[in-house]
Amino acid sequence: MSQVFEPELKQLGWRGWLYALWKFARPHTIIGTSLSVWGVYLISYAIASASRVDLLAPLGAWIACLCGNVYIVGLNQLEDVAIDKINKPHLPIASGEFSQRTGQIIVAVTGGLALLLAWVLGPYLFGMVAISLAIGTAYSLPPIRLKRFPFWAALCIFSVRGAIVNLGLFLHFSWVLQGNRSIPPAIWVLTAFILVFTLAIAIFKDIPDIEGDRQYQITTLTIKLGQKTVFDLALWVLTVCYLGMLLAAWLPQVSTVFLISTHLLLLGLMWWRSRQVDLQDKSAIASFYQFIWKLFFLEYLIFPAACLLA
């Protein structure tokens, strides 16, 4: 394998090559995927009232999902080299750290590993991974390339992150833990929250990329409505998420006080942080976008904790 990547290894060294691979994998998506796998496992464990923690089940699902994650974000980079040179010049293919061939090999290997491992581990996991990869392929790859259309692009992102991953992982872990395979209210609440939250991420993600998208005729919501309108829309979508969670905090499967107090705190923090964003400063917009991802990450810590504390 090292011979395949020999040009990059000579140029970057092993440490530089691994750092480029980390950037290629888009760290914020890797963290989100990791937290979703382990968070849903803990919720499944709490609901099933399992007698012991089986770390092999989430570990296998985690590796399969990470491979699928790299396939999806890597394929997008392979198809968006010209756009990324304007919007995200730090990415490995856009910057020249990785060749197109290297990117293709990484994408092919991780996609194959994701499907193979999921197939070995169970039918629910395989179905979840296969559907996610199919949608990720349709999102980036011509001639379909759904990312050209604002509605379909947003639908791809929040359907995978919001519904397919959460429901598929819960069914897989319930199957492993031999629990009840009907989906309980707590999982539907988390799924609804993440679904709407991911819609806000899908809306917001193109705000800092308006220059490259306009040049290459990628019609995004930001280009159609303007940065300020889309920014405010994303904020109100997130607000609906947090207010909705306050209503759901009365479920018997969660700790009501813990869920209400944490979500009120995060809602206030989000609005305070939003007032500091200068929409004329691309770095400020990108920083707030990463802050939204941090809020996304926190939900997969807070909600499982609320279930375990119930």
Rank of each mutant, 00 (worst) to 15 (best):
F204T: 01
S99E: 01
A249P: 07
L18G: 09
W175L: 10
L59S: 11
G103C: 05
L167M: 13
L225K: 11
G226F: 13
T137D: 01
I285N: 08
W17Y: 15
V230L: 14
L116H: 01
A57F: 15
T239C: 14
K224P: 00
Q217M: 12
S159T: 03
L177Q: 02
K147T: 05
P304C: 10
P58D: 13
L309Y: 10
L66R: 01
F297Q: 02
L169Y: 05
P58T: 15
W38Q: 02
I30S: 04
G168V: 07
H172K: 03
A118G: 09
Y289V: 00
T137Y: 14
R101G: 02
M1G: 10
V81L: 13
L115I: 15
T102I: 09
W293P: 02
L167P: 04
L141V: 09
A25C: 13
L75R: 12
I86N: 07
I157D: 12
A108Y: 07
Y124C: 09
L121D: 03
P89W: 11
Q77C: 06
T33H: 00
Y19A: 14
Q77G: 05
V73T: 10
W152K: 05
W188E: 03
C241W: 09
P58G: 10
F24Q: 05
T198S: 15
G179K: 08
T229H: 12
I201Y: 06
L225G: 07
A114I: 12
S255Y: 14
I187H: 08
F297Y: 03
R275H: 12
L116F: 00
R145F: 11
R181E: 05
D232F: 15
Q77P: 02
S182A: 14
V120G: 03
